[in-house]
Amino acid sequence: MSHEPPSNLLELQRFFARWVMQPQPLHRVAQEQPRHLCESVSAVVRAPDEDTALARLSIYHRMIFARLHASLAEDFPALAAVLGEQGFRALAAEFLVAHPSGGPNLRDVGRPLPGFLARLPRQRSDLAELARLEWARVHAFDARDDRPLTVALLHAAGESLPRVRLVAGTRVLEVRHDVDAVWAAADRDQTIPMAAARPGALLVWKRALVVWHRRLEPWEREPLAWLRSAASSDGVELGELCVRLAPDDDPESVARVWTRLQQWLAEGLLTVAAPGASV
């Protein structure tokens, strides 16, 4: 930490950030610093004495971390419930040092948290998966609100089948644990179980401003992967999607296609592709 008094606005702001954008309480930092560094605070902050100058900086230190911590707790409520207050606070402090907020929108602060958790060597891998699920829910919530394609709209379209795509914000997450069960327990304020091994995939999407997630059924994997890879502005032919919903030659295939398509339509997963729109 430099002890030179800042000579211009940029240096002053860097000086401030060096003191307040680290996780330790400032009085502890001050105890660990050489005397001249603490004296530099009262040379910059107007106060009757050094302790008061540090106390004034501490107000900002507490407010900044409280706000960032609250934002993370709001975006990752199940993770916070699993770790408990102290555990989540410690994780948030460690995370924010590694990933300070990089943009004006507080909403984006938690974006790197799932990756950060996955890279922590001592951390359980189920926690990174749970964080990934929660961030996918945030992503879906903030995504553009597409008007879902419904059976009624499809009937109204008559012979001209529309081009379709997944509603904005839809994500498929590969998981190795039943983090969906952990999330559900946290959401209902129930006792949170230890995550158990349960490989599979989770589908996350938004319908009518509410974010949903569920396990993928085996038949959905291929058509969903195709839809996502074809997530271009002009979408895919509904007829071609139907082919992929039941690709075998089973005589009951047509009925199965309609059942599966109806399920996706009822869930609000599909929207009519409009030129210029992207997922």
Binding site: L10, F16, A17, M21, I64, L68, G102, P104
Partner: peptide, 14 residues
């Protein structure tokens, strides 16, 4: 006010 320096946002009004 100011709120960010060197690409780090404080999310406070400073």
């Amino acid at each position: 006010c100011w709120g960010s320096v060197d690409g780090t946002w404080t999310h406070e009004l400073l």
